[in-house]
């Protein structure tokens, strides 16, 4: 029982991170029907920028409390990622908005490759370690070990998700986003500045990605130029699982995928008598993705067209 509970905790924390990254995919897809392949890389850049700031601060002000240092890292990473996403959209996607669908997808792959390799040139190929700044308080609950950081990740993820939902449902910008998602042309006629709305979507997604990036590297204690790619694919799978274009769906899909991966990797060996094992952990996400797309392309929560932003 304690093992099962621990796996559930593992899965929920992992799933919260997937969910946060999935938001970026789901928002952009909702509006542009574009898989922003580079979104995972934006997450990685967020982690890297934050780590650089943390490194500088630790050298300049060694007496600063650890939490403050990490917070400062996040606060610099967010605008950096926002600017990056703004630039990517403007340079690589906007000119192709009317081109055949294959074109922006190929550009997205290209941007992803460029960001990875730029990060490698700037921050090196080695894994960068996250300094032990955050308190390592642990609780034991029914035999499962839970750390303060894990609780913080889940709480923060849920808060961000709720905030975003409010933004999309209640604010003026949110209404413009939903209108644009339905029909760019009609939205434009109704006085919505479509270009600005699309930029805003990219920027909001990037801000969330920056936070997710720092979370990942704090949680696992490292960052690497390659970390964004697989994370992005998993997060995209999560978005599709929940129903792409749907914010609550991204949350649900992320958490579910995290739990599926944890339970799958933890139990598949025992269930299949060793025939399949944890070496197939990465297969689960793809398998879920394929099953959902084939049998229920609209995802678990379906695509409520009015709520696609």
């Amino acid at each position: 029982m304690d093992i099962f509970l621990q796996q559930l905790v593992n899965g929920l924390v992992l799933g919260s991170i997937y969910a946060l990254v999935a938001l970026g995919y789901t928002m952009v897809y909702g509006i542009l029907e574009l898989i922003n392949f580079a979104h995972g890389e934006v997450t990685m850049i967020g982690a890297m920028v934050a780590l650089s700031v943390i490194g500088v601060l630790m050298g300049a002000a060694p007496d600063l409390p650890g939490v403050m240092v990490v917070l400062a890292g996040i606060l610099v990473a967010i605008p950096a990622c926002m600017a990056l996403a703004f630039g990517i959209e403007k340079i690589a996607y906007r000119p192709l908005r009317k081109a055949p669908r294959l074109a922006p997808l190929i550009t997205a792959i290209g941007v992803s490759i460029i960001l990875q390799n730029l990060a490698m040139l700037i921050w090196g190929r080695q894994y960068v370690s996250f300094p032990p700044l955050l308190p390592t308080i642990r609780f034991e609950f029914l035999g499962a070990h839970i750390s303060l950081l894990q609780i913080a990740i889940v709480v923060l993820a849920v808060t961000i998700m709720a905030g975003l939902w409010l933004l999309v449902e209640k604010s003026r910008l949110g209404r413009a986003m939903r209108a644009t998602a339905q029909s760019k042309e009609v939205a434009q006629l109704m006085g919505v500045n479509v270009d600005r709305v699309i930029s805003a979507t990219f920027i909001i997604g990037a801000a969330i990605a920056a936070i997710a990036g720092v979370m990942v590297s704090a949680y696992y204690g490292l960052a690497h130029y390659y970390m964004g790619f697989m994370l992005g694919l998993k997060a995209f799978s999560a978005a599709v699982l929940g129903g792409i274009g749907n914010i609550a769906g991204a949350m649900l899909g992320g958490l579910l995928l995290g739990v599926i991966e944890a339970l799958g990797a933890g139990y598949i060996g025992d269930i299949t008598g060793g025939f399949l094992g944890s070496h197939y952990q990465d297969v689960f996400a793809f398998f879920v993705l394929i099953l959902v797309l084939v049998f229920r392309p609209s995802g678990l929560l379906g695509e409520r067209v009015a709520n696609r932003a």
Binding site: I91, A92, I106, T107, I109, G110, V111, S112, I113, I114, Q116, N117, L118, L121
Partner: peptide, 8 residues
Amino acid sequence: LLFGVALV
């Protein structure tokens, strides 16, 4: 890097 730039 060049491959990426070339694609875009």
